[in-house]
Design a protein around this nucleic acid. Structure first.
Lengths: 196, 196
DNA sequence: TCGTATGTGAAACTGAGTGTCACGCTAACC
DNA sequence: GGTTAGCGTGACACTCAGTTTCACATACGA
């Protein structure tokens, strides 16, 4: 088991370095603007080589958006954990609490990150792309709940719409500088599409 | 008025060249794969310089996605043209007929383009980004219909959801190799979110 | 006929991302 | 204890997208 344990400590160390690099990058991006900062700047600021930086984050955008990795799995798991009788729209709404949690834990940091992403076209696009890749996992989780193999068209639509609700709610939350209640906004968004 | 007329003929010529370049690019992309083809390849194939190619299309992706330019304005206009009493969800559904039209006019070409876009991550991402930028226009058109200045949260959500319906319907249409009826798929998608 | 607009080509430049190789450290093995 | 294998890192060269600049050429208006 020493092998496994060793690997584990290495992974923990890697995660720590990754978090550190992300932190440094975020500060720099906020101060100078995402586009003004080059990979060389990031590497220099973090005290590593460009190569190393790119090994931790495949792209510049991922230094910011890496925080969202795994959200799809978490939400899909939450979805599967919902009671079987619950209608899909409600189950989706509840599953998104998993994501919202992050905004409760660190509202200020989340606000800044969200603002940086929305204000930077490149980041916004990448985030969109990443979120788009969540949809299959969500639709399939819905299908699984229903005991089906493949998601129906309706399930795919609902999964996509749920993510839109999240985005629109976040937009409004951001526009209010975090003053409005994100949960209330998300509830309102979900209510505006009265899906079965 | 000669000045205006001259400008007009120039614009027409430009549009023709643009269409020609797009055609050449599309063939090359389909044959070799989007990522294998460089800007130099495109320029050489089209018989122009790299500079010129990039003057017609700001990016490589736009050589394919430029066809979708202006869709937001067209759909928003269609939305505003719907009867005032019509509920928003129905109006959105009808406004999307503007987009669907293209798929009726040239089903085979549309199928190939759609497939190329879906199969190429870079194109898919760009398309997503472009479509995302349509949302404000759609929400504002909804707001305008309601006599309001700014769109409500519900209107933003509906606009986004409508585009998702389009995307999901297109996905299923593509998966069926164009055999299923796109209009029926879109209707089904809209029906699965029974919004007011 | 003489500018002047505009479209094009050539070329240099920046910056992101990839691939390769060599070095150094640490941990297992003899 | 010395050796070796594996892994993280840095250095470097490379490809390619996209920007910018400049020169030329053509065509149109004064």
């Amino acid at each position: 088991m020493t092998g496994a344990a060793r690997t584990n400590t290495r992974d923990i160390a890697r995660a720590a370095v990754r978090a550190e690099l992300a932190q440094v990058a975020f500060e720099l991006f906020r101060r100078e603007g995402f586009d003004k900062v080059t990979l060389d700047d990031l590497a220099a600021a973090a005290g590593v080589s460009r190569s190393t930086f790119l090994r931790y984050f495949g792209t510049k955008e991922d230094a910011v958006l890496g925080a969202f990795d795994g959200h799809d799995r978490r939400v899909a798991d939450a979805l599967r954990a919902r009671p079987a009788g619950e209608d899909e729209w409600t189950a989706l709404r509840r599953a998104l609490d998993t994501v919202i949690e992050r905004y409760h834990v660190d509202p200020a940091g989340s606000l800044e990150t969200t603002r940086l992403v929305r204000d930077t076209p490149a980041l916004c696009a990448r985030h969109l792309e990443k979120q788009y890749s969540w949809r299959p996992a969500l639709s399939e989780a819905l299908a699984g709940r229903a005991g089906a193999e493949r998601p129906t068209l309706a399930q795919s639509v609902r999964a996509a719409a749920a993510l839109d609700c999240l985005n629109v709610a976040l937009d409004h939350w951001l526009a209010s500088d975090g003053h409005q209640d994100l949960v209330a906004l998300l509830d309102e968004a979900f209510a505006s599409l009265a899906a079965g």
